Simulated assay, not measured.
Amino acid sequence: MIKIGDLNLGDFPLLLAPMEDVSDPPFRAVCKTNGADLMYTEFISSEGLIRDAAKSVQKLDVYDYERPIGIQIFGNEISSMREAAAIAEEAGPDILDINYGCPVNKVACKGAGAGILLDIDKMVAMTAEIVKAVKIPVTVKTRLGWDESTIKINEVTERLQDVGIQAISIHARTRKQMYKGEADWSYLGEIMKNNRIKIPVFGNGDIDSPEKAKAYKEKYGVDGLMIGRAAIGYPWIFNEIKHYMQTGSLLAVPDMEERVKVAKKHLDFSVEWKGEKLGVLEMRRHYTNYFRGIPHFKPYRTSLVTTDEYAKVNDILEEVSTVFADEVF
């Protein structure tokens, strides 16, 4: 049984990765329904929380149906991160997660996210202060290192464990790689053989099929998997992986009726959470993935990403369900 604090996550939990502009409550809702065991919010700026910035504060929204749920924060100042951690805890999450993995320039080049991998001592000091600042379990999401010459992830995991984190998720790429090239899970395999490591270690990077999930579990021995991009527009991947792990057989891929049903549920949550205008707008990034690979779908995709009214988008989805009812995936 994998545990984070008092939270029981099952024998091999599947986590939804925190993704900026993706992992909002509407997206988390459809992932939870389809088998995600633990989810995290989008990363939230510590400075934004301290300033009470509207966008940052809205990201604190968590709901009981999502539990267990973690709030993730990022920043480059220890005092600000400590204060933001206390603010985040008041929102009622089960876990507080620290983002030490975001590779984008506007974050990493300011010493936050993956940028802190250039200063491991500061990373450890910041983590220690955050652990002291809250009563809920603290976890970390990070990468292997800034580049190949700075990979010290085994040492980092030990030191972060020593200052009190209760789990770590590791994206098996360096910051320099961004999201390119192949993730190198051999480093995770080494961590799992390290007898000093007692906390759960979750692997992230390139898990995009049930077969690969099972193979990586068996080869590298991680305690669970964190899935990000493969879940965008395809939340079914969590239950597909679980079914394959248990039975060795693949579930049938979702048909058009199921895809439209989940896309509409996602849309409904989005409009309910953000209002019609913004809810419709922010759903646009998901339609390509919900309906990927369908021949002659381009006119419908264009309509879905250019229509501003909820009712009209709903009508388009209904038409898609009818026109492509016999589509085989």
Results as ranks from 00 to 15, higher is better:
residue 300 Y to I: 03
residue 5 G to A: 11
residue 319 E to A: 08
residue 47 E to R: 12
residue 45 S to P: 09
residue 99 N to C: 06
residue 229 R to Y: 06
residue 199 I to K: 14
residue 31 C to R: 02
residue 176 K to Y: 10
residue 239 N to A: 02
residue 24 D to T: 08
residue 298 K to M: 05
residue 258 E to M: 13
residue 210 P to I: 05
residue 113 G to S: 12
residue 280 V to F: 01
residue 314 N to W: 00
residue 13 P to H: 02
residue 9 L to H: 01
residue 44 I to V: 11
residue 254 P to K: 09
residue 299 P to Q: 12
residue 80 S to N: 13
residue 128 A to D: 10
residue 20 E to N: 11
residue 256 M to E: 08
residue 186 S to R: 14
residue 180 K to Q: 15
residue 11 D to Q: 15
residue 142 T to G: 06
residue 27 F to L: 04
residue 179 Y to K: 11
residue 112 A to H: 07
residue 27 F to V: 02
residue 210 P to K: 05
residue 233 G to R: 02
residue 201 V to D: 07
residue 128 A to G: 09
residue 91 A to M: 05
residue 265 K to C: 01
residue 42 E to Y: 02
residue 60 L to R: 09
residue 212 K to W: 13
residue 116 I to W: 01
residue 83 E to T: 09
residue 176 K to E: 15
residue 66 E to H: 06
residue 121 D to M: 05
residue 41 T to A: 04
residue 254 P to V: 10
residue 198 K to I: 08
residue 39 M to A: 01
residue 197 I to Y: 10
residue 242 K to A: 09
residue 282 E to W: 05
residue 110 K to E: 14
residue 329 F to R: 14
residue 23 S to D: 06
residue 243 H to D: 13
residue 113 G to K: 03
residue 292 R to E: 12
residue 79 S to R: 15
residue 193 K to D: 12
residue 276 E to C: 07
residue 198 K to E: 14
residue 126 M to Y: 01
residue 239 N to Y: 04
residue 270 S to Q: 00
residue 299 P to M: 07
residue 266 H to K: 01
residue 82 R to I: 14
residue 204 N to V: 04
residue 59 K to T: 04
residue 73 I to R: 00
residue 189 G to V: 08
residue 19 M to P: 07
residue 80 S to V: 04
residue 272 E to H: 03
residue 10 G to D: 08
residue 143 R to Y: 12
residue 96 L to Y: 01
residue 150 T to Q: 03
residue 63 Y to L: 15
